[in-house]
Simulated assay, not measured.
Amino acid sequence: MTSMYEHAGGEEALHQVEEAFYDKVLADPVLKTQFTERRPGHVDHLTWFTSESFGGPDRFTRELGFDYIIAVHRGLKVTDEQRERFAALYLEAFEEAGLLDNPAFRDAVRSHVEFGAQVAQQNSHAETEDELHPIRAVPHWTWED
């Protein structure tokens, strides 16, 4: 079975998708309060996370760790509208890269981003450790190719 990472074209292809996605969120009126400026390294971090989640190298875990992603989202108070827009723009970036032609892959990418956006939203509102989503490692997504 081909991993999602391999199907997507590996790290270089995913980096291009994340770059396009990042451009979208920076320009989006719904997300501009969350993505106020281009931050160096953000696209790399997104790429590392997606790559690892899709079955690629564990660079996100090794270089940043899951606590990093929890800390980044704490206090952001992500709204439902922002969560939904984030997921829509993520799928749009994958679509524009020509990576969503396979229905099973499309469903897996949608599941990945919707889950991640839910976790980020929950963590963005958490005031105590108990209110955080229980996940503490990069989730690994698979699909039936």
Rank of each mutant, 00 (worst) to 15 (best):
T2S: 14
T2M: 15
M4H: 05
M4L: 15
M4C: 12
A8M: 15
E11A: 11
E11W: 06
E12P: 04
A13N: 09
A13E: 11
A13R: 11
L14Q: 10
L14F: 07
Q16E: 12
V17N: 05
E19Q: 14
Y22Q: 12
Y22F: 12
D23N: 15
V25A: 10
V25L: 10
V25E: 08
L26D: 05
L26N: 13
A27H: 06
D28N: 12
D28H: 08
V30G: 05
V30C: 01
V30P: 04
L31E: 11
T33Q: 13
F35C: 08
F35I: 01
T36V: 15
R39E: 13
P40K: 11
G41R: 10
H42I: 06
V43Q: 05
D44H: 10
H45E: 11
L46H: 06
L46Q: 14
T47N: 02
F49K: 05
T50I: 11
S53R: 02
S53A: 15
F54R: 01
F54D: 02
G55Q: 00
T61Q: 15
T61L: 03
L64P: 03
L64G: 08
L64C: 03
L64K: 14
F66R: 04
F66T: 02
F66W: 08
F66Q: 02
Y68M: 11
Y68G: 02
A71T: 08
A71L: 02
V72F: 13
G75Y: 10
G75V: 06
G75I: 10
L76M: 14
K77I: 00
E81Q: 13
Q82K: 00
R83I: 07
E84F: 01
E84G: 02
R85C: 03
F86N: 11
A87I: 12
A87W: 10
A88M: 10
A88D: 15
L91H: 06
A93S: 12
A93H: 05
E96G: 08
E96V: 03
G98M: 05
G98H: 04
L100M: 13
L100I: 07
N102I: 07
N102V: 09
N102P: 03
P103S: 12
P103W: 06
A108W: 04
V109Q: 00
R110S: 09
R110L: 08
S111N: 12
H112Q: 07
H112Y: 13
H112W: 12
V113E: 05
V113I: 13
A117Y: 12
Q118E: 07
Q118T: 07
V119E: 09
A120C: 06
Q121L: 00
N123H: 01
N123T: 03
S124E: 10
S124V: 03
A126H: 01
E129H: 07
D130Q: 14
E131I: 04
E131V: 04
L132E: 12
H133W: 00
H133Q: 00
I135K: 14
R136N: 14
R136Q: 13
A137C: 00
A137D: 00
W141N: 07
W141L: 14
W141Q: 13
W141K: 09
T142R: 10
W143I: 04
E144G: 10
E144W: 11
D145P: 14
